[in-house]
Amino acid sequence: MKLGSDITAVITGGASGLGEATARRLASRGVKVALFDLNTERGEALAKELGGVFCSVDVSSSPSVDAGFAKARAAIGQERILVNCAGVGSGKSKTASRDRETGEIREYPLDNFEQIVQINLIGTFRCITKSAAGMLTLDPLEDGDRGVIVNTASVAAEDGQIGQVGYSASKAGVVGMTLNIARDLSRDGIRVNTILPGLFETPLFARASQEAVAKLSASVPFPSRLGYPDEFAQLAETMITCGYFNGEDVRLDGAIRMAPR
């Protein structure tokens, strides 16, 4: 797919972090962008800067997502690109555990598990199916593409750490459905790929101490640093523009393999 002013994109989680970097990169190529996010102040400012549109969207709510797509399409037209970056992390909690001092047995809080899966996995699929339905109304471009979808998983999908089961399960689900969806949409010229980022400079790490960031950076084989959000955006752009890139799950992690803890 050739990028330009005739192409529109929706980026969920587009107001910050990986989503913001992707929106900036696509906008720099002339693409009209719509940002789906819950951070209204940040999202509206960035959309204004990029000449795009901001839509306050909760990806765990179908009415909210429907309203977001309706607003975006009315403003900039039917999207040919969807990049799913919206998601949440989680505090660490074991499947079941015993308090070493009191002997109390604790179970994993299922409401936390459900919330993470609802946002990271179901929210991603909710946006995919609604966007793909819109893409099906478009004529194919010269290269045959009707649209391209890029999802965000995590290396935790493959290297889940102790206490990370909810997050890992949600991201593994995104990986697990990528090929299925690519096959579902293949006859209609819609490609689907997923990025598994490692440790990246995002708002989450901005709150961490310098000591913690240095320790995490040293755990990355090469380059021994956190990933730059634009490096994620660069891979997303490649997945969008390379017509033979389809049905793939790609780690972007500096060769890190997460330790158990």
Rank of each mutant, 00 (worst) to 15 (best):
G144R: 11
I81F: 04
E201K: 15
R126A: 09
A153W: 02
L136F: 11
L138V: 13
Q210R: 15
N180L: 10
M177R: 00
R98P: 02
G134P: 00
G91S: 14
N193I: 14
Q115A: 12
L141K: 08
T95Y: 11
K171V: 15
V192M: 04
L199I: 12
Q164R: 06
I122P: 00
D145G: 08
T137N: 11
E142M: 01
I76S: 07
E104Q: 12
L110R: 11
V83A: 09
S131E: 01
L185H: 02
S131N: 10
A72G: 08
T202L: 01
D184S: 07
A172M: 12
D139I: 11
A96W: 13
G189L: 05
L179N: 03
G144F: 09
N180G: 14
E142H: 06
A157D: 00
T202S: 05
A133R: 03
V155D: 01
S170I: 05
I181P: 01
L138T: 01
V155K: 05
R191A: 11
L199A: 11
S93Q: 12
I81L: 12
G89H: 03
N193R: 04
I162P: 03
L199C: 04
R187K: 12
Q164A: 14
I128H: 03
I181T: 15
L110G: 04
R146M: 08
T124A: 15
L136Q: 08
A156Y: 03
F205P: 00
I162C: 08
T102S: 14
D99V: 14
D184V: 07
L179E: 09
L138M: 11
I149T: 03
V175S: 05
I105Y: 11
Q118P: 00
N180R: 08
F125W: 11
K171L: 12
A172Q: 01
G87D: 06
R80V: 02
F69G: 02
A86C: 04
R100V: 15
F200K: 01
I105P: 00
